[in-house]
Amino acid sequence: MTFPENLKYTKDHEWIRVEGDTGVVGITEYAQGELGDVVFVELPQIHKQVKQGESFGTIEAVKAVSDLYSPLSGEVIEANAELEKAPELVNKDPYGKGWIMKLKISATNELDALLDVKTYRELIGK
């Protein structure tokens, strides 16, 4: 299982890749494995304001449905429309084509509350 070094992680198994004042958000390889076959991702509305730790959408696998939680506060500036046609990208390429949304980050100090790779690996025991 891979967990890229340049990402920050949440306890709820999302990742965020910070690029300046924007962040790209998805779920981790561990999370997609636990969920199994993803059949639907409910994407957030563009311009929606989200708070750190708040639900911004849902992800539905064959077995169950789960909430998606935003790693940081900010404004949704893009959602991955590819997932509407091909939700399985979340399984196949969780850190690449399976990204879920892009955020304009409003409070970078919130980054301190996120986990680095080492801490995240400890959390999931991998």
């Binding site: 199994g36 076959d37 696998a61 064959v62 077995k63 399984n91």
Partner: peptide
């Protein structure tokens, strides 16, 4: 075992 190759497959 809950799944091997994936539920749909």
């Amino acid at each position: 075992p809950v799944q091997y190759s994936g539920i749909i497959d």
